[in-house]
Nucleic acid binder design. Structure first.
Lengths: 142, 142
DNA sequence: GTTGACCTTCCCATCATGGGAAGGTGCAGG
DNA sequence: CCTGCACCTTCCCATGATGGGAAGGTCAAC
């Protein structure tokens, strides 16, 4: 199977398949005499695993861990679950931060009539935004 | 005022101040005889505007628009509000996608006991994840 | 044998940010 | 005056995951 067909079957682009090979996330594909890569069912299986993990937002490095656990028949599901729970927390933290930005901006936007006059509370909020909007330092606080 | 002091006062790192200057987001700072940049109150004001906009998740290009509107005394607040509302939608869309990933993963994780056995529904879900997971919806990268 | 679709490698771009090297400036203490 | 240290300058490189595109080889159908 050529790389294009493997891409279509797995849902991973040809660019990404080559990239994953280059960083060792998948083993080097077999080659035909022509130099073309040749993919078999096991390769597709692995690529599908990777794509589903990416669809769930896992980073490449986390996927590398998951792949190791996948191929380890003596793995403990405790480790897998720990990775998953950590990832869930990170996803929710990022979602929460984005939503917080949206909420803050909406507060500003609600004060703006948008009626065509030059007067604009949104601009004013950015201009002199009260406090330094507690950003960089300690994101802990829960 | 040196760049380090401007950085502390505005909450924008020295690296970022130079970068913003290089891409024309802020005008070239004045220079002393030594070649050191010299920042005045107007520069700090602009840097503070930029930092607050970034804290709200605006991209550099959007900030460029906002800065133009800021300096345009005849601006209409309609435009500003339109940018803000568009941005709110994008933020909430991204937050929603992240939360959806978290929810999907949590569904898998809840099926996993994490009791130390090799059997793991999370790995199984990644391995044979049913549907091709609807590829058309990517996390938006602007 | 030609054509067009596919493959190969290699380099470059993104976006916002930081790291670090090599060298100049400024100031305070001996 | 000299030394040291903290700061400044520019320049290059790296990130993470992805795509674009060029230059050139391969394959299959007509």
């Amino acid at each position: 199977m050529n790389i294009g067909q493997a891409a279509q079957a797995s849902g991973v682009s040809t660019k990404m398949i080559r990239y994953y090979e280059s960083i060792g996330l998948v083993p080097p594909a077999g080659r035909r005499d022509s130099g073309y890569r040749d993919f078999g069912p096991a390769d597709l299986h692995r690529l599908g695993f990777i794509r589903r993990a990416r669809d769930l937002g896992f980073s490449v490095e986390r996927i590398r861990l998951l792949l190791e656990l996948w191929s380890d028949t003596h793995r403990s599901n405790t480790e897998v679950k720990a990775i998953a729970l950590t990832h869930i927390q990170e996803l929710e933290e990022r979602a929460r931060q984005l939503q917080e930005m949206a909420d803050n901006l909406r507060t500003l936007a609600q004060a703006c009539d948008g009626d065509g006059r030059p007067d604009c509370p949104i601009i004013q909020g950015l201009e002199a935004g009260g406090e330094p909007a507690c950003h960089s330092v300690h994101p802990a606080r829960h």
